[in-house]
């Protein structure tokens, strides 16, 4: 690891616990790079996570970190941000953590447009607990709880976040790490709810069951399936079949929750005088 990046990580905790070839390590480094390249006060930065493989990431990062209840990372982060709005609050969450157990917290945090930077690690499965299917497991894919293929439809997380009211939505992958870093940096700059979906890969619990090859094959699959949104604008719809878009998908700033809340307090204090 680069020496400049080492101060952002708890080097004594490494090597990390993730399986060989897990994409989470790549995305965690991308978060570190984005924070290093952004001009933010590291002593005023908090990283909150829930439960799951992804939520182990703050344990390796040298900030004030909170490892909270399953699905409740956004609820804790909302509390942290409201108690001290000058903090930069990051939320690292997984696909099951944010969209299944924490689904309601997710849509309501987006609806409030509270200034959180959410990085959602999407590996399409509950990796830690033994490969159960999650709301982001694609239809037809094998998991330990869907041995004949997943009959359900999966969420489109960016579409869900945009509909719920997030002001910045982007998607990157473990392969397109430079783009992911840029997306996270833009998310940090955005005053409001920023969601960055980071497509990861789980060779152990997802790849093996679905015969997707080794970690490098899964990484190359991400490269093959992902289409940059700027390229996709020029492509006919039939060429986008079975692909997903990456890059800045939505950016529409509007009043942020903690600022509006402070304004309300000020207004009521003036009224009481």
């Amino acid at each position: 690891m680069r020496p400049e990046l080492q101060k952002l990580f708890r080097m004594e905790k490494l090597p990390h616990i993730w399986c060989p070839g897990c994409g989470h390590g790549i995305i965690t480094r991308a978060i570190g790079e984005a924070i290093a390249e952004s001009d933010i006060n590291l002593d005023k930065t908090v990283i909150v996570s829930g439960i799951g493989c992804s939520s182990r990431a703050p344990g390796y990062m040298n900030f004030d970190t909170l490892h909270t209840l399953h699905g409740r990372a956004l609820a804790f982060a909302t509390g942290v941000k409201l108690a001290n709005p000058e903090l930069n609050v990051f939320v690292i969450t997984g696909d099951g953590d944010a969209t299944a157990i924490g689904g309601n917290h997710f849509i309501h945090a987006a609806r409030r447009n509270i200034d959180l930077n959410v990085i959602l690690f999407n590996n399409n499965i509950y990796g830690m607990t033994g490969g159960q299917y999650s709301p982001l497991t694609p239809t037809g894919k094998m998991a330990s709880t869907s041995p004949y293929g997943n009959p359900e439809n999966n969420f489109d997380i960016p579409a869900l976040a945009i509909a719920a009211g997030a002001s910045y939505v982007a998607r990157g992958t473990a392969f397109h790490d430079k783009l992911l870093i840029e997306c996270i940096k833009e998310g940090i700059k955005n005053k409001g709810f920023s969601l960055i979906e980071a497509m990861s890969m789980c060779p152990t619990s997802y790849g093996r069951r679905n015969k997707m090859g080794n970690a490098a094959d899964m990484l190359n699959d991400l490269k093959r399936i992902a289409v940059n949104i700027n390229v996709a604008k020029k492509l006919p719809p039939e060429k986008l079949e079975g692909k997903f878009l990456i890059g800045k998908l939505h950016h529409k700033p509007y009043p942020e929750f903690t600022q509006e809340y402070d304004k309300l307090i000020l207004k009521l204090q003036k009224g009481a005088e």
Binding site: G21, A215, A216, D217, L219, N220
Partner: peptide, 13 residues
Amino acid sequence: YKYCKACGICYDL
């Protein structure tokens, strides 16, 4: 070398 888990991403890419 101590941290390497032999995932093979580096030499594939």
